[in-house]
Design a protein around this nucleic acid. Structure first.
Lengths: 218, 218, 218, 218
DNA sequence: AATGAATGAGAATTCATTCAT
DNA sequence: GATGAATGAATTCTCATTCAT
């Protein structure tokens, strides 16, 4: 008897409530860490009643999961746009990498607290969540590996162990992102940092000196 | 009264007790994570009474700290032996790096669970511990940076941003160690992994190709 | 406006709703017991909204009450038909008893779950309900006592304490009903059980033997 | 190091604590019923801390169980003394029954609240507890049945269905006990009630009349 | 010094009931 | 009238820490 209109209005309000709870949770988790965060703080942040929380999520664990899922979705949406055209030479490859990282960095900036939260607290939440997070990293590593193998096959990357190196790249990326966001790299701009990282990835620290460095000096 | 003898025996027993508690804590923390670990489990693992714990440590937090300190001490002892002779050319540098990482890897193997525990749980324990951990990483980065700057100054490393690159190296190292220990790199042997990492650090993945490219310069 | 017609239709629908809620409650209470039963389960069983429940009943307590009242009404309707003609000798008395119990048993069979629910959970609901239930038992005991006193007065029942014995009869009846329904009497048919109970009530277990024994004494 | 003396003192104090909690629970359960009883009330009644409760019992359910077990143990201890000598004729049988019931009644008097609690609330606690309680009743019924079958075999009890009749006896006993304790039998003394019950059990209400009636008919 | 029993503050969770739509 | 989302009071239970022995 309340029908259509009512139902839709309810569904909309429900959706908003859920989003509000997720936002509140992101804030509280980021502030206190997962383990110290209280459901009571999340609901008071979301201006909801204690019981309301449990209408939407089974427990603290589940909202953390939901937070992750919401985030991952948006990340892979971003990436999927990039996979379109593969680079054809080192120059294109490097330029594409810099551009990609810039975009990712910009995108990540808006999720900075959430991202650090997931990376930092995720492994301590739960066996299950740790696995989920690992899966996420593997996904990224697989992407990186695809690029790398293409480059090796195309002859403009060194014949290296793509499995290991792609993992190293992902690890480096997350590490540097954390360093940067925590202000642990005061001597560099973001722009510069990205360039440095890409150069390091392409050349190592010893790279050009051996050959080009020596040659260019002449 | 046999004060002197008795005193020493007591001190020795005290020391043993403390070690036993630390070992038990390492085990329990590694198994459950810091937050889920119970003092009651630590003491029962150490075959001590509940109250005994508090004779040796102020609280759960403090034993985690103590665990860390005991570990860090041993790590830097290891490193200090290595700082002795600086490499004189790229060959020496690379060889020294491989040798050093092998030694560290071997040493770390024995502390593998503890190390992963500290890296994983440390940042979630509390602000103070997170800072402590950061200090540890900075220390390692500083060591790496020293080497790197020496190499740059000596002309056998590329002129790069040593601050950023040394951080990247440390991050990569910890990341790869975790991947390796969690069996996430099934296609590589440890020996091979170390070589790959050093090559990647020296040459990047584009490295040798540049050489070949240099060949094109002819 | 079709006020009259509309009013009646509304009243009818209201009545149906209420019945549906009562039926749902009977089901849920029987399944979970009063204390573990949830209002939410009752309404979902009745395919009604949560709020609807409170339009018909003040609270969970009240619907239990209503359930009882609906039941008791029907029980006494049944009995009132029986009170008509009093037995004139032991044979009639016994025959009438067997017939009555058979009818009651048949009637009760359809309310078996509800009946067991009321007997089992009633005393734990609250003081007020416990009294109500006691009143019900007293009513039955009074009926039984009427019969018994008549029989004593008529000289075909032993001069016993009718107050106590009628209570004992009621207690025995409810007990045996529960045993039977719970399958705790696997060796007897219902028909046989009724006969046994009536014989036990008329003769005790020692009954006829006394007679024979008396004969032996001679 | 605290050794023997300390251990024994601790064990004794532990035992006392547990007893105190059981006593408190019996009181609170009897007052409020199982479902309305709060752990917090039990501990405050026992003058213990909230946490102390959980050192001794998993939850409210478990202490109810423990209460039951403590009670049942004492009941069967009582009964076992009685099984010694079986009666040889009706007179002995009746006299033994009256004596037994008197003793049981006296014994039960001291556990009156607990007994009523278990009988009333038991079936609503839990499937598992309901079964346990049923087992208890079955145990009593089995005892009664043993006596009855002996009497039948010995020829001083009527050839009746011992399974059904023994159940009826147990049911009657519990029912009458409750009636008596709740003051629902104001017109009878306990002494008289017992006699009446035994007479009813031996003779039914129609019993002697049949004999006498038969004689009068002549 | 060592022990482990006792404690209670604190957190999660449930569910009858209210209330806006 | 009907609905179901929202609510928060009420309860259970945990576990770090204290303390009597």
């Amino acid at each position: 008897m309340p029908t259509e209109f009512r139902k839709q209005a309810d569904a909309r309000r429900r959706e908003q409530r859920k989003e509000a709870l997720l936002d509140a949770a992101a804030l509280v988790f980021a502030r206190q860490g997962y383990h110290r965060a209280l459901v009571s703080e999340i609901v008071s942040q979301a201006e909801a009643g204690q019981g309301t929380f449990y209408r939407y999520f089974r427990d603290k664990r589940e909202i953390f999961d939901a937070l992750f899922d919401r985030f991952v979705e948006s990340v892979f949406a971003e990436f999927s746009e990039m996979t379109a055209n593969l680079p054809r030479d080192v120059g294109e490859y490097r330029a594409a990498s810099v551009a990609a990282i810039r975009r990712i960095a910009a995108r990540a900036e808006g999720n900075r607290d959430l991202l650090m939260l997931l990376v930092r607290e995720g492994p301590t939440v739960d066996e299950a969540f740790a696995r989920k997070l690992t899966g996420f990293y593997e996904g990224l590593a697989a992407l990186a590996r695809g690029y790398l193998e293409h480059a090796i096959a195309a002859g403009f990357a060194r014949r290296c162990n793509a499995e290991a190196v792609s993992q190293a790249l992902v690890g480096m990326a997350f590490w540097m992102a954390q360093q940067w966001w925590q202000g642990r790299l005061p001597g560099v701009t973001l722009e510069r940092l990205i360039e440095e990282m890409v150069d390091f990835a392409f050349l190592g620290f010893g790279g050009p000196v051996v050959v080009g460095g020596g040659g260019a000096d002449r």
